[in-house]
Design a protein around this nucleic acid. Structure first.
Lengths: 228, 228
DNA sequence: CATTACATGTCGGCT
DNA sequence: AGCCGACGTGTAATG
């Protein structure tokens, strides 16, 4: 990785065109050819960048100043960096990163709830995970004690669009005679945290809300693992 | 801005927990307190980070190694960076960045389509852009040859949530007697690219889809500009 | 300050 | 490779 601090001007042309006036910035050139232009603030997103796979051509502008042209083969996107003055320039061999280990995402939540569907509502049993429909898979399809089908939508944080999503599934599922033989398909909206507005909308549409305790579920799972 | 290259181990705890094993990485400390942990690859997104506003406490771990703890006041998120070896450490005064100038986003598409509504459907004429409703503005409100009102939602890429958005508008607009005198309000979902699922949903709801050719529109606009 | 819609989103998973 | 949905989404506009 090469890190350059320089007074520079940047022009991007791709899905949009963008321009950065001459100013001092940090340029990060990664070994895969990608380039990041960072200012001292904002967030983790660079002011401008080029994603890999791309190549950098280190050239010279008409007036003799250095100009770097970063281009992406596929998309015709180009990033032109005109360098006025270099204040710092170092390179470092970082090696390959072992990578990020995540925990606690929706997928894990779905796995845990698939194993313990009764924590969502009494008597619930799993029919299948990722139940396919024409507009996408339902996270969990279950059946309740009365034999009714129950569609479960799982989110880390339950907000309105999650309720909308479940509503679309329910609309579709309720047209399926095989699922509605014993009555309409119920909906359960499950999340670690449910926003008040989402709860109101869900309730208004007859969808049950279930708060999920991730740590408790993980505990149940550990206990179970120890037993077998 | 301070740039440090170091062998480090990073642990994040917040909405999720994540761990980065000991390896050499670039640490970017911005003047607003935010911290970015970059590897030599990936995209512009850091492996891990803390967004401002946040504060860094430069401390020492039990074994004597340096440990930086970055914490966000609001959310209780913390990022712990255990430093094994510093390979590089420099600071630079970048000043305030003049910022990015953009062009070519959805707004421009809307301008072009407002000038050429007939490219969306035969006989369409513009009533007004950003037609106000209680739940937000409709991108374009038009009228067709038969005198029916036509609500147009414009996206760069047409996906399901765009269809949902237009559906909400149509539900509302169709309750307005002034707009429905000659019949129900039609919906047109316009985008440079429409995902199959979005098309299915739109069609199911009686909404027309229109593929927009941005370059062609821009060409029409240029031709027109040259005439006047 | 909360909500909403956009983003050069990026990223991973699956077909 | 393309499609689809989640993301520690972030971020700007807007009421």
């Amino acid at each position: 990785m090469r890190i350059v601090v320089a007074r520079c001007q940047v022009d991007y042309a791709g899905r949009l065109t963008a321009h950065l006036p001459m100013a001092t910035r940090v340029l990060m050139l990664k070994s895969d050819g990608s380039v990041l232009v960072h200012s001292d603030g904002g967030s983790y997103k660079p002011l401008n960048w080029m994603s890999p796979p791309c190549t950098v051509r280190f050239g010279t502008a008409e007036d003799g100043r250095d100009e770097w042209v970063v281009s992406q083969a596929k998309s015709d996107d180009t990033l032109r960096i005109l360098i006025d003055e270099v204040l710092h320039d170092t390179s470092h061999d970082l090696g390959i990163d072992p990578g990020l280990q995540k925990d606690g995402v929706e997928k894990h939540l779905q796995e845990l709830l698939a194993e313990h569907p009764a924590t969502l509502a009494d008597g619930l049993t799993l029919v299948r995970r990722e139940f396919p429909t024409a507009i996408g898979p339902v996270d969990l399809m279950c059946r309740d004690a009365a034999g009714l089908s129950v569609a479960v939508e799982i989110k880390r944080r339950g907000e309105i669009d999650g309720v909308e999503q479940l509503t679309r599934y329910l609309d579709l599922l309720n047209r399926d005679p095989a699922l509605t033989r014993k009555g309409p398909v119920r909906g359960v909206f499950a999340a670690q945290e449910i926003k008040p507005q989402a709860r109101v909308l869900a309730t208004d549409r007859g969808i049950d809300c279930a708060l999920v305790d991730y740590d408790a579920l993980r505990g149940m799972d550990d206990a179970e693992s120890r037993l077998f």
